[in-house]
C-alpha cells in the first residue's frame, strides 16, 4: 500500500461521505443521478464478489463493505425514502444507463484476463465504473447550477481514480508491478471523462464563483 493508493481510497471514501452528508443533512437528492448511483452499486457488487472468500486484509474488507453498503443505502434512499425521493429529478435523469450495463457486459465477455465468472465480473465492473459517471455529468449539464456538496462529490469521485493511476505508475517503478492493462486503460478513460468537469470546477474555485457547467 503506497501513499497514492491510500490517498485514492480516502478520496473515494470522502466522496461517499459527502454524498451521504448531502442526502442526510438536506433530506434531498436534487442534482444527484439515481442512475449513476445504481451503476455504482452494480460496480461494487460485481467487483467484490470475493469479499468473503478471498481475505486480503481488514482494511480491504472494511472498505469493500463500506462501498457496497453506502451505494446500496443511497439507492434505497433515493427510491424509497419518502422525503428524499420527492426531490429526485426523474425527468432530468434520463440517461439510458441500461445500454451502458449491456455494452460493458458484452465487452467484459469479449475482453478479459480469463474467461471465468470472477474475471468476467471483475472486467465488467471495471468497464462499468469507467462510464458510471455519465448519467450524473449529463444531469449536471442539464440542471445548470450545481450545489456545493454535489460538486464536491463529483470532484472527489473523479480524483480518486486519478490517484489510482499515480499508484500504478509508482508501483511500476518501485515494485516492477504491472497493473492489469484493463484497469489501467479503463482508469484513464474514467478520469478523462471528468476532464471538463475538473476544468469548470477549477474555474469556479479560482473565481470563487458558483460552479456552472455549459448546457
Amino acid at each position: 500500500m503506497n501513499i497514492f493508493r491510500f490517498a485514492g481510497d480516502m478520496t473515494h471514501l470522502i466522496s461517499v461521505l459527502v454524498l451521504l452528508l448531502k442526502i442526510y443533512a438536506t433530506k434531498s437528492c436534487s442534482g444527484i443521478s439515481l442512475k449513476t448511483q445504481e451503476l455504482y452499486a452494480l460496480v461494487f457488487l460485481s467487483r467484490y464478489l470475493d469479499l468473503f472468500t478471498n481475505y486480503i486484509s481488514l482494511y480491504n474488507t472494511l472498505m469493500k463493505l463500506v462501498f457496497i453498503g453506502s451505494s446500496l443505502a443511497i439507492v434505497w434512499c433515493m427510491r424509497m425514502h419518502h422525503a428524499v425521493k420527492r426531490s429526485y429529478d426523474k425527468e432530468v435523469d434520463t440517461f439510458r444507463h441500461y445500454y451502458l450495463v449491456l455494452a460493458c457486459f458484452v465487452l467484459a465477455t469479449l475482453v478479459n484476463e480469463q474467461f471465468t465468472l470472477r474475471e468476467v465480473c471483475w472486467a465488467f465492473s471495471i468497464y462499468l465504473e469507467a462510464v458510471a459517471i455519465l448519467p450524473q455529468l449529463v444531469l449536471l449539464q442539464r440542471s445548470g447550477n450545481v450545489d456545493n456538496l454535489t460538486g464536491q462529490y463529483v470532484f472527489f469521485l473523479g480524483a480518486y481514480r486519478a490517484f489510482y493511476i499515480l499508484n500504478w505508475i509508482y508501483r511500476y517503478f518501485t515494485e516492477q508491478y504491472f497493473t492489469r492493462w484493463i484497469a489501467c486503460i479503463a482508469g484513464i478513460v474514467q478520469t478523462a471523462l471528468y476532464a471538463d468537469f475538473f476544468y469548470y470546477y477549477f474555474i469556479s474555485w479560482k473565481n470563487n464563483a458558483k460552479l456552472q457547467l455549459p448546457a
Binding site: D9, H12, N60, M63, Y164, N167, Y177, T179, R180
Partner: peptide, 10 residues
C-alpha cells in the same frame, strides 16, 4: 502470489 496481488486493490 500474483493472483491476490492483482486483486488487492479496490
Amino acid at each position: 502470489n500474483p493472483e491476490s496481488q492483482s486483486h488487492d486493490e479496490l
